[in-house]
Protein backbone atom coordinates (compact mmCIF):
# COMPACT_ATOMS: atom_id res chain seq x y z
CA UNK A 1 0.00 0.00 0.00
CA UNK A 2 1.43 3.42 -0.95
CA UNK A 3 1.66 6.18 1.58
CA UNK A 4 -0.82 8.29 -0.41
CA UNK A 5 -3.49 5.61 -0.19
CA UNK A 6 -2.91 5.27 3.49
CA UNK A 7 -3.36 9.02 4.01
CA UNK A 8 -6.45 9.00 1.87
CA UNK A 9 -8.02 6.23 3.85
CA UNK A 10 -7.29 7.92 7.12
CA UNK A 11 -8.72 11.16 5.76
CA UNK A 12 -11.95 9.51 4.64
CA UNK A 13 -12.28 7.67 7.94
CA UNK A 14 -11.68 10.89 9.84
CA UNK A 15 -14.45 12.64 7.94
CA UNK A 16 -16.77 9.66 8.26
CA UNK A 17 -16.44 9.91 12.04
CA UNK A 18 -17.55 13.58 11.83
CA UNK A 19 -14.20 15.10 12.77
CA UNK A 20 -13.12 18.48 11.45
CA UNK A 21 -10.27 18.87 8.99
CA UNK A 22 -8.02 21.79 9.89
CA UNK A 23 -5.75 23.89 7.68
CA UNK A 24 -2.56 22.01 8.59
CA UNK A 25 -4.05 18.53 8.19
CA UNK A 26 -3.30 16.44 5.16
CA UNK A 27 -6.08 16.51 2.58
CA UNK A 28 -6.50 15.20 -0.95
CA UNK A 29 -5.84 17.74 -3.67
CA UNK A 30 -9.35 17.40 -5.00
CA UNK A 31 -10.81 18.21 -1.57
CA UNK A 32 -8.62 21.30 -1.33
CA UNK A 33 -9.52 22.44 -4.84
CA UNK A 34 -13.22 21.89 -4.32
CA UNK A 35 -13.15 23.91 -1.13
CA UNK A 36 -11.13 26.73 -2.66
CA UNK A 37 -13.60 26.88 -5.53
CA UNK A 38 -16.64 26.82 -3.29
CA UNK A 39 -15.40 29.18 -0.56
CA UNK A 40 -14.00 31.75 -2.96
CA UNK A 41 -17.21 31.71 -5.02
CA UNK A 42 -19.11 32.17 -1.83
CA UNK A 43 -16.90 35.11 -0.84
CA UNK A 44 -17.30 36.67 -4.28
CA UNK A 45 -21.08 36.32 -4.00
CA UNK A 46 -21.04 38.23 -0.74
CA UNK A 47 -19.13 41.17 -2.18
CA UNK A 48 -20.84 41.26 -5.58
CA UNK A 49 -24.14 41.03 -3.68
CA UNK A 50 -23.30 44.36 -2.05
CA UNK A 51 -23.90 46.10 -5.38
CA UNK A 52 -27.58 45.45 -6.08
CA UNK A 53 -28.45 46.29 -2.49
CA UNK A 54 -26.00 49.15 -2.19
CA UNK A 55 -27.87 50.58 -5.17
CA UNK A 56 -30.67 51.71 -2.81
CA UNK A 57 -28.71 52.95 0.22
CA UNK A 58 -28.65 56.55 -0.97
CA UNK A 59 -32.36 56.39 -1.83
CA UNK A 60 -33.67 54.47 1.18
CA UNK A 61 -37.07 55.92 2.04
CA UNK A 62 -36.44 56.68 5.73
CA UNK A 63 -33.36 57.26 7.84
CA UNK A 64 -34.12 54.12 9.83
CA UNK A 65 -34.31 52.00 6.67
CA UNK A 66 -31.15 53.62 5.38
CA UNK A 67 -29.33 52.73 8.53
CA UNK A 68 -30.57 49.11 8.53
CA UNK A 69 -29.66 48.65 4.89
CA UNK A 70 -26.23 50.19 5.30
CA UNK A 71 -25.57 47.87 8.24
CA UNK A 72 -26.77 44.91 6.23
CA UNK A 73 -24.58 45.63 3.24
CA UNK A 74 -21.68 46.17 5.61
CA UNK A 75 -22.36 42.71 7.08
CA UNK A 76 -22.07 41.25 3.59
CA UNK A 77 -18.65 42.86 3.21
CA UNK A 78 -17.73 41.27 6.53
CA UNK A 79 -18.93 37.88 5.28
CA UNK A 80 -16.72 38.31 2.25
CA UNK A 81 -13.81 39.04 4.55
CA UNK A 82 -14.33 35.96 6.78
CA UNK A 83 -14.73 33.76 3.75
CA UNK A 84 -11.64 35.06 1.94
CA UNK A 85 -9.73 34.39 5.16
CA UNK A 86 -11.15 30.87 5.37
CA UNK A 87 -10.10 30.21 1.76
CA UNK A 88 -6.63 31.63 2.45
CA UNK A 89 -6.05 28.85 4.98
CA UNK A 90 -6.09 26.49 2.00
CA UNK A 91 -3.09 28.18 0.42
CA UNK A 92 -4.54 30.77 -1.97
CA UNK A 93 -4.18 34.53 -1.53
CA UNK A 94 -6.97 37.08 -1.60
CA UNK A 95 -5.28 38.76 -4.56
CA UNK A 96 -5.36 35.52 -6.53
CA UNK A 97 -9.03 35.05 -5.73
CA UNK A 98 -9.93 38.63 -6.64
CA UNK A 99 -8.00 38.28 -9.83
CA UNK A 100 -9.99 35.17 -10.72
CA UNK A 101 -13.21 37.09 -10.05
CA UNK A 102 -12.14 40.10 -12.09
CA UNK A 103 -11.10 38.04 -15.07
CA UNK A 104 -14.24 35.93 -15.01
CA UNK A 105 -12.41 32.71 -14.10
CA UNK A 106 -14.23 32.45 -10.82
CA UNK A 107 -18.02 32.68 -10.58
CA UNK A 108 -20.37 34.19 -8.04
CA UNK A 109 -24.05 33.59 -7.34
CA UNK A 110 -26.02 34.40 -10.48
CA UNK A 111 -28.82 35.99 -8.53
CA UNK A 112 -26.79 39.18 -8.23
CA UNK A 113 -26.85 39.66 -11.98
CA UNK A 114 -30.45 40.78 -11.72
CA UNK A 115 -31.16 44.50 -11.26
CA UNK A 116 -32.77 46.11 -8.21
CA UNK A 117 -35.36 48.28 -9.92
CA UNK A 118 -37.39 49.42 -6.93
CA UNK A 119 -37.15 49.80 -3.18
CA UNK A 120 -39.29 46.67 -2.83
CA UNK A 121 -36.43 44.71 -4.39
CA UNK A 122 -34.46 45.36 -1.20
CA UNK A 123 -37.28 43.70 0.71
CA UNK A 124 -37.50 40.83 -1.76
CA UNK A 125 -33.75 40.22 -1.66
CA UNK A 126 -33.65 40.10 2.12
CA UNK A 127 -36.69 37.87 2.32
CA UNK A 128 -36.00 35.52 -0.60
CA UNK A 129 -32.32 35.72 -1.45
CA UNK A 130 -31.02 35.84 2.10
CA UNK A 131 -33.70 33.26 2.93
CA UNK A 132 -32.40 30.91 0.24
CA UNK A 133 -28.84 31.63 1.33
CA UNK A 134 -29.72 30.56 4.87
CA UNK A 135 -31.18 27.27 3.57
CA UNK A 136 -27.95 26.64 1.70
CA UNK A 137 -25.64 27.83 4.44
CA UNK A 138 -26.98 26.44 7.68
CA UNK A 139 -25.83 22.92 6.72
CA UNK A 140 -22.39 24.38 5.94
CA UNK A 141 -21.95 25.23 9.61
CA UNK A 142 -21.32 21.48 9.93
CA UNK A 143 -19.04 21.28 6.93
CA UNK A 144 -16.03 18.99 7.38
CA UNK A 145 -13.54 21.80 6.85
CA UNK A 146 -13.13 23.58 10.20
CA UNK A 147 -12.27 27.13 9.10
CA UNK A 148 -15.19 27.17 6.63
CA UNK A 149 -17.63 25.73 9.16
CA UNK A 150 -16.64 28.33 11.74
CA UNK A 151 -16.92 31.20 9.25
CA UNK A 152 -20.39 29.95 8.36
CA UNK A 153 -21.53 29.99 11.98
CA UNK A 154 -20.80 33.72 12.15
CA UNK A 155 -22.33 34.34 8.73
CA UNK A 156 -25.55 32.48 9.47
CA UNK A 157 -26.24 34.45 12.64
CA UNK A 158 -26.29 37.64 10.62
CA UNK A 159 -28.20 36.19 7.69
CA UNK A 160 -31.26 35.54 9.80
CA UNK A 161 -31.34 39.22 10.72
CA UNK A 162 -31.08 40.03 7.02
CA UNK A 163 -34.01 37.84 6.20
CA UNK A 164 -36.14 39.39 8.92
CA UNK A 165 -35.44 42.94 7.79
CA UNK A 166 -36.33 41.95 4.22
CA UNK A 167 -39.58 40.39 5.28
CA UNK A 168 -40.38 43.45 7.36
CA UNK A 169 -39.89 45.72 4.34
CA UNK A 170 -42.26 43.51 2.36
CA UNK A 171 -44.79 43.51 5.18
CA UNK A 172 -44.70 47.28 5.37
CA UNK A 173 -45.20 47.62 1.63
CA UNK A 174 -47.95 45.01 1.53
CA UNK A 175 -49.86 46.85 4.24
CA UNK A 176 -49.14 50.22 2.67
CA UNK A 177 -50.69 52.21 -0.15
CA UNK A 178 -51.86 50.38 -3.29
CA UNK A 179 -48.77 51.57 -5.17
CA UNK A 180 -46.57 50.12 -2.46
CA UNK A 181 -48.32 46.77 -2.51
CA UNK A 182 -48.00 46.72 -6.29
CA UNK A 183 -44.30 47.44 -5.92
CA UNK A 184 -43.97 44.48 -3.53
CA UNK A 185 -45.83 42.14 -5.88
CA UNK A 186 -43.72 43.23 -8.81
CA UNK A 187 -40.55 42.54 -6.83
CA UNK A 188 -41.80 39.07 -5.87
CA UNK A 189 -42.63 38.39 -9.52
CA UNK A 190 -39.11 39.23 -10.58
CA UNK A 191 -37.16 37.60 -7.70
CA UNK A 192 -39.10 34.38 -7.15
CA UNK A 193 -37.70 32.23 -9.94
CA UNK A 194 -34.13 33.45 -9.70
CA UNK A 195 -34.29 32.63 -5.97
CA UNK A 196 -35.30 29.04 -6.74
CA UNK A 197 -32.39 28.86 -9.17
CA UNK A 198 -30.01 29.73 -6.32
CA UNK A 199 -30.09 26.10 -5.19
CA UNK A 200 -28.42 25.04 -8.42
CA UNK A 201 -29.36 22.51 -11.09
CA UNK A 202 -31.72 19.63 -10.43
CA UNK A 203 -30.08 16.69 -8.68
CA UNK A 204 -30.15 14.62 -11.86
CA UNK A 205 -27.87 17.11 -13.62
CA UNK A 206 -25.72 18.29 -10.73
CA UNK A 207 -22.02 17.69 -11.32
CA UNK A 208 -20.29 17.74 -7.96
CA UNK A 209 -22.89 16.34 -5.63
CA UNK A 210 -21.96 12.78 -4.77
CA UNK A 211 -18.36 13.24 -3.70
CA UNK A 212 -19.16 16.48 -1.86
CA UNK A 213 -21.77 14.63 0.15
CA UNK A 214 -19.25 11.97 1.15
CA UNK A 215 -16.73 14.67 2.08
CA UNK A 216 -19.41 16.44 4.11
CA UNK A 217 -18.99 19.65 2.17
CA UNK A 218 -22.58 19.22 1.14
CA UNK A 219 -25.21 17.59 3.30
CA UNK A 220 -28.45 17.94 1.37
CA UNK A 221 -29.14 17.82 -2.31
CA UNK A 222 -30.07 20.89 -4.37
CA UNK A 223 -33.63 19.68 -4.85
CA UNK A 224 -34.10 18.88 -1.17
CA UNK A 225 -33.01 22.37 -0.15
CA UNK A 226 -35.10 23.99 -2.87
CA UNK A 227 -38.19 22.11 -1.69
CA UNK A 228 -37.58 23.22 1.90
CA UNK A 229 -37.29 26.79 0.73
CA UNK A 230 -40.56 26.64 -1.19
CA UNK A 231 -42.32 24.99 1.75
CA UNK A 232 -41.09 27.69 4.09
CA UNK A 233 -41.69 30.67 1.82
CA UNK A 234 -45.11 30.06 0.29
CA UNK A 235 -46.96 30.49 3.61
CA UNK A 236 -44.98 33.69 4.19
CA UNK A 237 -46.13 35.03 0.82
CA UNK A 238 -49.69 34.24 1.86
CA UNK A 239 -49.16 36.13 5.08
CA UNK A 240 -48.06 39.12 3.02
CA UNK A 241 -51.09 38.80 0.79
CA UNK A 242 -48.85 38.44 -2.26
CA UNK A 243 -49.13 35.92 -5.07
CA UNK A 244 -46.26 33.62 -5.90
CA UNK A 245 -45.83 33.84 -9.70
CA UNK A 246 -46.27 30.12 -10.38
CA UNK A 247 -49.60 28.80 -11.74
CA UNK A 248 -48.52 25.24 -10.93
CA UNK A 249 -47.91 25.91 -7.27
CA UNK A 250 -50.07 23.59 -5.22
CA UNK A 251 -50.12 22.04 -1.77
CA UNK A 252 -49.76 18.27 -2.12
CA UNK A 253 -51.50 16.48 0.76
CA UNK A 254 -49.89 13.17 -0.13
CA UNK A 255 -46.26 14.36 -0.03
CA UNK A 256 -46.73 17.06 2.57
CA UNK A 257 -44.93 19.49 0.29
CA UNK A 258 -45.75 22.16 -2.25
CA UNK A 259 -45.57 21.08 -5.87
CA UNK A 260 -44.19 23.81 -8.08
CA UNK A 261 -43.74 24.46 -11.78
CA UNK A 262 -40.67 23.80 -13.92
CA UNK A 263 -37.70 26.13 -13.61
CA UNK A 264 -36.49 27.89 -16.72
CA UNK A 265 -33.00 26.42 -16.78
CA UNK A 266 -32.09 28.01 -20.07
CA UNK A 267 -32.46 31.41 -18.42
CA UNK A 268 -30.24 30.17 -15.58
CA UNK A 269 -27.60 28.97 -18.03
CA UNK A 270 -27.71 32.26 -19.91
CA UNK A 271 -27.08 34.23 -16.73
CA UNK A 272 -24.33 31.87 -15.59
CA UNK A 273 -22.74 32.20 -19.01
CA UNK A 274 -22.49 35.95 -18.49
CA UNK A 275 -25.57 37.09 -20.38
CA UNK A 276 -27.74 38.19 -17.46
CA UNK A 277 -29.04 41.73 -17.23
CA UNK A 278 -26.21 43.02 -15.01
CA UNK A 279 -23.23 40.66 -15.39
CA UNK A 280 -21.14 43.24 -17.21
CA UNK A 281 -21.92 46.10 -14.78
CA UNK A 282 -21.24 44.02 -11.69
CA UNK A 283 -17.77 43.00 -12.80
CA UNK A 284 -17.00 46.41 -14.25
CA UNK A 285 -17.90 48.11 -10.97
CA UNK A 286 -15.72 45.66 -9.06
CA UNK A 287 -12.76 46.03 -11.41
CA UNK A 288 -13.04 49.82 -11.44
CA UNK A 289 -13.11 49.98 -7.64
CA UNK A 290 -10.08 47.71 -7.51
CA UNK A 291 -8.15 49.70 -10.08
CA UNK A 292 -9.07 53.06 -8.55
CA UNK A 293 -7.88 51.74 -5.21
CA UNK A 294 -4.50 50.56 -6.46
CA UNK A 295 -2.65 53.77 -5.56
CA UNK A 296 -4.19 53.67 -2.09
CA UNK A 297 -3.13 50.08 -1.46
CA UNK A 298 0.34 50.86 -2.83
CA UNK A 299 0.62 53.86 -0.53
CA UNK A 300 -0.44 51.82 2.50
CA UNK A 301 2.14 49.15 1.65
CA UNK A 302 4.89 51.76 1.08
CA UNK A 303 4.07 53.48 4.35
CA UNK A 304 4.08 50.19 6.25
CA UNK A 305 7.48 49.34 4.78
CA UNK A 306 8.89 52.75 5.72
CA UNK A 307 7.51 52.47 9.24
CA UNK A 308 9.03 49.02 9.66
CA UNK A 309 12.37 50.33 8.41
CA UNK A 310 12.27 53.25 10.83
CA UNK A 311 11.40 50.96 13.71
CA UNK A 312 14.26 48.63 12.77
CA UNK A 313 16.84 51.41 12.50
CA UNK A 314 15.68 52.74 15.86
CA UNK A 315 16.13 49.36 17.49
CA UNK A 316 19.57 48.87 15.97
CA UNK A 317 20.61 52.39 17.04
CA UNK A 318 19.50 51.75 20.59
Amino acid sequence: MTQEMDLNQRFEAYIASDQKIEAKDWMPDAYRKTLIRQISQHAHSEIIGMQPEGNWITRAPSLKRKSILLAKVQDEAGHGLYLYSAAETLGISRDEMLNALHTGKSKYSSIFNYPTLAWADIGAIGWLVDGAAIMNQVPLCKCSYGPYARAMVRVCKEESFHQRQGFEIMLNLSNGKPEQKEMAQDALNRWWWPSLMMFGPNDASSKHSEQNMRWKIKRFSNDELRQRFVDMTVPQAELLGLTVPDPDLNWNEATGHYDFGPINWSEFEQVVAGNGPCNRERIETRVTAHENGAWVRDAAAAYAAKSAERAASQTSAA
Binding site: I47, M50, G54, Q74, A77, T288, A289, G293, R297
Partner: peptide, 11 residues
Protein backbone atom coordinates in the same frame (compact mmCIF):
# COMPACT_ATOMS: atom_id res chain seq x y z
CA UNK B 1 -20.28 51.25 -0.49
CA UNK B 2 -18.88 48.64 -2.96
CA UNK B 3 -16.38 51.15 -4.35
CA UNK B 4 -13.70 51.24 -1.64
CA UNK B 5 -10.01 50.58 -2.34
CA UNK B 6 -10.13 47.39 -0.25
CA UNK B 7 -12.79 45.41 1.53
CA UNK B 8 -11.55 46.54 4.95
CA UNK B 9 -11.86 50.18 3.94
CA UNK B 10 -15.32 49.63 2.48
CA UNK B 11 -16.32 48.36 5.90
Amino acid sequence: CSHGPALEEDI
